[in-house]
Amino acid sequence: MTIIFDKDKCEHLDECISLLEDMVEGRVSYIEGADAMIRWFESQGLSIFDSKDFYMFLLIQSETDALPRHAQRKFWSEQALKDLEGKITESEEWAKQFAEADCRNLLRRLTAT
């Protein structure tokens, strides 16, 4: 797992950069952002397993896959969401702590001229 993707060969790189910016600025949670980054990476025809740049997002997704995402919460009962509130908050904090520095580094690399 040493391949780093070639930013010059990616389409819609602005979407990736915008999402990373939203994550590090707190507009998008790291859990929701990890899901979106995986979708973006796969939209480029790449495997998430082929790049150390994106492996952290797979780890976040794997560790939080039992939690409802924002769009899914409307289908959950209020009590179930209330019961998970602490776990969701704890997981969000963990994901941010786990990935923030790497996201900032990746963002710096992608926006470097």
Rank of each mutant, 00 (worst) to 15 (best):
K52G: 06
A99D: 08
P68A: 12
D35S: 11
E100A: 01
E92A: 04
I48Q: 03
F41C: 12
S43Q: 04
L13P: 08
W94T: 03
K7D: 07
E85Q: 15
V28N: 05
K82M: 07
S51C: 10
V24I: 14
D53M: 06
D65Q: 11
M56E: 07
W94S: 06
G45T: 04
A66E: 14
F57I: 01
H70K: 13
P68H: 11
L19D: 06
I38A: 02
S43H: 05
F49V: 05
M23A: 06
A34M: 03
D22M: 12
S29P: 00
I3Q: 15
R39E: 11
F57W: 15
G45L: 04
Q72D: 14
D50N: 13
Y55M: 10
I38H: 01
M1G: 15
L107I: 02
I4Y: 14
D8W: 08
E15R: 12
E42P: 01
S62F: 01
M23T: 05
F75E: 13
Y30N: 07
M1C: 07
R108Q: 11
E32F: 00
L20K: 03
Y30T: 02
L19H: 06
L46D: 00
G26Y: 09
L19F: 08
S18T: 15
R108D: 09
M37V: 03
L67K: 07
Y55V: 08
R104I: 06
P68T: 11
H12T: 09
R69K: 15
G26D: 08
I17S: 06
L46P: 00
A36Y: 05
R104K: 15
R73W: 02
S77A: 12
R39G: 00
M56F: 10
E85Y: 06
R27F: 13
G26R: 08
S77Q: 11
W76E: 12
Q79Y: 10
I38D: 02
S18A: 09
W76I: 09
M23L: 11
A101V: 10
F75D: 14
K87W: 01
R69G: 02
I17C: 09
I3G: 10
T2M: 07
F49R: 12
W94M: 05
A99R: 09
D83W: 03
I31V: 14
E90Q: 14
W76C: 07
L81I: 10
F5H: 09
F49W: 12
E25T: 15
Q44V: 02
L19T: 08
G26H: 08
E85C: 00
V28C: 09
M23R: 06
R39P: 00
A80E: 14
F98G: 03
A99W: 07
A36D: 12
D22S: 14
F75L: 11
D83I: 03
E85F: 04
T64F: 01
E15F: 13
S29E: 06
K82S: 13
D83F: 00
C103A: 15
Q44W: 03
H12A: 13
R108S: 10
S77H: 09
V28W: 01
F41M: 11
T89N: 13
F57A: 10
D22F: 09
W94E: 09
L19Y: 04
